[in-house]
């Protein structure tokens, strides 16, 4: 497949830490607007994959292209984020001393250079965009609460709201429903599905019922490379997958 029409193109990416191959010639292609679930046992390289895409870890070998042309392996984290790649961590990290509103304002797509932020004044458009996200994430009544005082689920939602505000082309989401109640999990699945289409999303998740609720193409990672790809039903039927992951 040619890399030009893809959003994200990983080819033969390898990373090793002290001899341990965290990623072993990993190849993965994401099309614009696509949503993908990544599953795999612990140590399969799911988080390392996110690290190499977002610039936190440099791959030893391999190609990572964004929109078919930008080489992500040469860029720093902030530059990659500014290309339009957002990332949500496993543990919700919101800015605790700031209010919900300020958290969203910081995340909102706007010039990121110091002198621009020093003289930044919120515009009518920016304000209505934040209002909109507060509504989507149901945090409207909590807008002036300190983010540190929110419940775990609310922090997850705020973080998803911050990613929406950032308006990335590609969104990497690491275990979004860890520690959520069933109702919150369901709402989160709905929310992610509503985001997909406008944005491409990669979701790493352990929770099978959540992956099923998303109803998207699944990639199974094991020992740093792709083991199987397809619908959840087809990969669950795959004998190799059952051996390495589901069978355990």
């Amino acid at each position: 497949m040619s890399a030009e029409s893809t959003l994200l193109y990983l080819d033969g990416v390898s990373v090793s830490f002290d001899g341990f191959k965290a990623l072993n010639s990993l190849s993965l292609v994401m099309m614009p607007g696509e949503m993908r679930a990544i599953i795999g046992p612990n140590g399969a390289g799911k988080t390392t994959m996110m690290d190499v895409i977002t610039g936190k870890t440099r791959p030893d070998t391999g190609t990572i292209l964004f929109e078919g042309q930008t080489d992500l392996t040469r860029l720093r984290e902030a530059a990659i984020a500014n290309l339009g790649i957002g990332r949500k961590f496993q543990r919700p990290t919101v800015f605790e001393p700031h209010t919900v509103w300020d958290n969203l304002e910081l995340a909102l797509k706007a010039p990121r250079r110091p002198l621009k932020t020093l003289t930044y004044a919120i515009s009518r458009d920016d304000r209505s965009r934040i209002e909109e996200i507060l509504d989507i994430t149901r945090l409207s009544p909590l807008r002036s609460r300190q983010a540190g005082s929110l419940s775990h689920g609310q922090k997850q939602w705020l973080e998803i709201g911050m990613l929406l505000a950032q308006d990335p082309k590609l969104l990497l989401v690491d275990e979004p429903v860890a520690g959520m109640t069933d109702a919150e999990t369901e709402q989160t699945a709905e929310l992610l599905c509503s985001i997909a289409g406008k944005h491409s999303v990669i979701v790493v998740e352990h929770d099978m019922s959540f992956v099923r609720a998303l109803g998207v193409k699944v990639t199974v990672l094991a020992e740093g490379s792709v083991l199987a790809e397809g619908s959840l039903d087809s990969v669950s039927a795959n004998a190799q997958v059952i051996d390495t992951y589901l069978g355990r």
């Binding site: 984290e77 902030a78 957002g86 990332r87 990290t93």
Partner: peptide
Amino acid sequence: RVRFMGYD
């Protein structure tokens, strides 16, 4: 986290 949000 701030870095991943695009701030240098």
